[in-house]
Design a protein around this nucleic acid. Structure first.
Length: 272
DNA sequence: GAAGGCCTGGAA
DNA sequence: TTCCAGGCCTTC
């Protein structure tokens, strides 16, 4: 489940590893993940240089020379890995980029195929719709404005945190962990939560994301760094994936509830 | 605002 | 054999 810290980790690594490289080949092994017409990409990507690799929400963005941008969304099980051309190709590989004068390739693989690839001009109005619809990044929100945003909504706080048009980058892991840290239950109606607690939630979100980033994100099932190593923040999860286990703070059993088809975990004692 | 669909591997 | 994981989009 690559969320903000996982995608940011990858973007930083790939930026360091790929900056300045010239694209010599692009192989689309499975076109179903491609949001852009195949010919559009094939016609325009060759010879372009990688200027920088960035993140926006859960999207990884690769800016190329001459005003083109390559986008990846990792869905649930997406991976971006560097491989030597001599290595065996892992199953479920959907896309390959090769570089001039290099025996390394960037590959995109995704077992469950919830991921997407897009190739667009580097212009806001040409970006994929999912990107255009994104709300501000968590740290871009002023805490008071963040509180107001939720104070005016009647939905469950957890569902709203997952809504990418409000705040970009949170998925199931970091919304649960943030709510735990802020002491708020996932099913609480947003407008019923006190302003200062919503401001505290904003602080919790920023803290959790920052710590996760420092540990290279969470590797649960499939998430890997570009070099194949794993993130370690899963070792510090307080509630996500810990249903039925004891809360590390108070010993109470972590409870799980279903919300819009997703599992939410929380401590009934620490979260009121 | 809520629910269903897409997709596959692994666990029950 | 069935269920579950959940990103995002579409439909109700």
């Amino acid at each position: 489940m690559p969320e903000l810290p996982e995608v940011q980790t990858l973007a930083s690594q790939l930026n360091r590893l790929l900056e300045g490289r010239e694209i010599e080949g692009a192989e689309i092994l499975n076109g179903t993940l491609l949001e852009t017409p195949r010919q559009e990409l094939e016609k325009n990507i060759l010879g372009k240089k990688i200027i920088r690799v960035l993140r926006r929400g859960k999207y990884l963005r690769i800016d190329l020379s001459e005003g083109w941008t390559l986008w990846f969304h990792l869905g649930m099980t997406g991976q971006l890995l560097l491989r030597l051309v001599s290595e065996a190709l892992a199953p479920h590989t959907h896309f390959l980029l090769s570089f001039a004068g290099s025996n390394e390739q960037l590959l995109f693989r995704d077992v469950r195929r919830f991921g997407t690839i897009a190739f667009t001009p580097t212009a806001e109005d040409a970006f994929p719709r999912g990107v255009q619809n994104l709300g501000p990044e968590p740290e871009e929100w002023d805490p008071e404005a963040f509180a107001t945003l939720f104070k005016t909504r009647r939905g469950r706080i957890k569902s709203l945190l997952l809504n990418q048009t409000l705040v970009a980058g949170l998925g199931n892991i970091y919304s649960d962990e943030s709510l735990y840290r802020a002491g708020i239950r996932p099913l609480e109606r947003a407008h019923r939560i006190a302003r200062r607690r919503l401001e505290r939630l904003h602080g919790a979100v920023c803290e959790v994301l920052e710590e996760a980033l420092q540990w290279g994100g969470s590797s649960i099932d499939d998430y890997l760094h570009a070099d194949g190593t794993r993130g370690r923040f899963q070792e510090f999860h307080q509630v996500y994936g810990r249903g039925g286990e004891a809360c590390r703070a108070c010993g109470t059993k972590i409870r799980t509830v279903k919300l819009a088809g997703r599992t939410s975990s929380y401590c009934p004692r620490c979260q009121k």
